[in-house]
Design a protein around this nucleic acid. Sequence first.
DNA 1: CGGTATCCCCCGCGATACTG
DNA 2: CAGTATCGCGGGGGATACCG
Lengths: 245, 245
Amino acid sequence: MKSYASFCPVAKTAEIFAERWTPLLLRELCMGARRFGELQQGLPLISRSLLAQRLRELELAGVVERMPLPDGVRHEYRLTVEGEAFRPLIDLMGMWGQTHGRGRIRPGDTDPAQLVWGMRRHLETAALPAGRLVVQFEFSGVTKAWNAARYWWLVLRRPEVDVCQKHPGYDVDVTIAARLHAFTLVWLGHRGLAEARRAGEVRLDGPPPKVALAREALGLRDEPWVRGFDFSPRPDPFGPPVPPA
Amino acid sequence: MKSYASFCPVAKTAEIFAERWTPLLLRELCMGARRFGELQQGLPLISRSLLAQRLRELELAGVVERMPLPDGVRHEYRLTVEGEAFRPLIDLMGMWGQTHGRGRIRPGDTDPAQLVWGMRRHLETAALPAGRLVVQFEFSGVTKAWNAARYWWLVLRRPEVDVCQKHPGYDVDVTIAARLHAFTLVWLGHRGLAEARRAGEVRLDGPPPKVALAREALGLRDEPWVRGFDFSPRPDPFGPPVPPA
DNA sequence: CGGTATCCCCCGCGATACTG
DNA sequence: CAGTATCGCGGGGGATACCG
């Protein structure tokens, strides 16, 4: 949190907000991440020391509140009111990225885990099928050495999405076999599914009605579009199951 | 422009936007600064090499366009369409700073030159007096060694504001003698003028009607408020005089 | 003035080890 | 697991020189 030695409101905000990793850390907190491990999972490449340092800085800045958990060891981190006020900035950064970041995503930016967990986080629960739908992913062209598992499963059943790294036991309804980079762009809306299929980079296999359900649930459109992302809180993926409303 | 190795739209935007100095540089470009020297004046503490580097990075990112000037030596820098799209982000950062940055401004953040030039940039031309109004500033409590001139003059005459470091020749209408830090907070709206006067940290001397005009023109209110700042382009302060409309 | 090239220092950050 | 403390390296960035 190095000072700009300026009273300009933009500079004062930049001192807090525009440090390395901070916007992404705030994104995680905006989405409801509370524990150190959760935050680290959302920021796969940050080192623990740096994460701890950033959290300390944000606490000092009055943006994050850190409360001891009953176990006396762990803590809970949450945004203060001032921190919550960064949410519109995160939203706007997401929009800039979605409209002007097209063409900036290199293969090295993609990673199956981020992608699948990101889908879980951002899927519209309303668009999920009422019955269970199991989608299996087989990614090719995975460049990152770490966490490069090629097979993933998504179990969709309104209003929940489960992510699995092992076959979930249920029968697979739809198999998506795709180049990781291509499918990531389709997910983001930067490429149309139709074009990616024509190029042979994405395949959806399964009974047509199921495939249609999966496309609807995942928001995979034939033509490119600007997918909006919502950064409001999600239920803790590792917390206790939410009681049915 | 270090990568986060992530396809997340927020991360992609952060790679470009959330680097040190970049938000402030974009603020300057948003306000219409075009030449290297102008940019450097708006970012007093940046080194020339770093400014050049940032401009190069932003050009590479397609955010800034760099065009040679006829003299074959200098260049003109301006925002591309993608760069223009950062304006809402700058505005929002300004708002965050104005509403949540109160109390974060330390005496070391203040500087007479920044303050006076900032007033020139952000004054509402509509609120300026029709006739000429000359305001003299005498700052005390200036901590910065460099560019610490204590005396400044503002010549207000709708729709123009002139900044002088020497007595402009015209008779002075209003003299503002103030502690730099206190007056900066009053200007920002973080402190009320009434309270600052009571504390003896700001004095306005001159015929009451003129003082009232100056207060109106400068937006100095008795009670604290959230002053909004506009970052849309201003006429070049060193360019040719604008022909009267 | 408006930059570019070079040098070099400092500190930001990663790696590692340690603790409850 | 959830951090804290320490060490050591690399590169980000300041200072300077130089050029058109």
